[in-house]
Nucleic acid binder design. Structure first.
Lengths: 158, 158
DNA sequence: GTACGACAATTGTATATACAAATGTAATTG
DNA sequence: CAATTACATTTGTATATACAATTGTCGTAC
């Protein structure tokens, strides 16, 4: 009887563990698959504007500054995926005329980056297209379900 | 009264739309952030084994074949993020001695790729470390919550 | 005020990825 | 059976990313 109980307990642990394993792996895979889907769709939209997702994100960060100067570190800290080499990403945006870069007079080690009128106009034409895709991408879930999803994702990163 | 009702209706629509917008954008961002978190942690573990996530995934696909020959297209179809150039990824794995490549005798256009003993051994030592990280990454949610999360993610991709 | 460490950004280099063009093989069609 | 098309992979090239080393600037301690 003792043996049986011990055995049962062990088996329960194994089953529970295996469920945990499967769930953990499944979740990581599921997030990855969903992210690939999202990224592909949004990249596809941005492609016609000759801009990458990261460049788009940086432009939006700069717009959110409302003219306040932004240096490279600020940008990097606020970027979704901390990519190395924000310098060269900004270079690309400068080449396209979407941003300007000045040396900070208070601290000559820093640079100040501003979005240009052209950059703001580009964002204005891109925004609705991206929004449309984002809405389509999440259309399969109700508002309640999306809210739950966001709550769980936020909790997951705690 | 008519005007008021009409106005109310309009406002409701605007609020609803704005909520939708916020939720759609928030969800896309949340997935991206979570994915970056996951990827960073797993990459960090794999780094000590001198292997990338994509290489690790391909090795696992090959192991899942249990000796059945696998060609490049099969691998590509089963990869999470359809990267171009599986050829060069396999090249890296060959250099490390983790896989072997043969020309398929039935159809000389195809190549057959197998995981080697060394590759299987590498996977065996990597697996528990990755599993540990995956478990830690999902530890903030209960089994019920993780199940809900997976259900929602799956539904989202439909 | 000069020597030192810390800071902010840039540059160099290796590797990774995306996409198009090219190579070699097989199947099909007249 | 020669020519054409489709298939499976590889190669070329441009761009992107990761990481380390370097440059120029600032703050501080002596």
């Amino acid at each position: 009887m003792y043996i049986q109980l011990s055995y049962m307990k062990e088996l329960e642990d194994i089953i529970k563990t295996k469920t945990d394993i499967a769930l953990a792996k499944k979740t990581v895979l599921n997030i990855s698959l969903t992210n690939v889907n999202f990224k592909d769709s949004i990249s596809h939209v941005l492609k016609s504007f000759d801009i990458s997702i990261e460049q788009f994100n940086v432009l939006r960060i700069l717009r959110g500054q409302h003219g306040k100067p932004t240096n490279l570190q600020d940008i990097q800290d606020r970027m979704v995926s901390k990519m190395s080499n924000t310098t060269r990403l900004v270079d690309k945006l400068i080449l396209k005329g979407f941003v300007e870069r000045f040396i900070c007079e208070d601290n000559r080690r820093k640079v100040e980056i501003f979005i240009t009128k052209k950059g703001l106009e580009a964002l204005q034409s891109i925004d609705p297209k991206v929004l449309l895709v984002e809405t389509e991408l999440t259309a399969a879930l109700s508002i309640e379900e999306l809210t739950t999803l966001n709550t769980l994702l936020t909790k997951l990163r705690k």
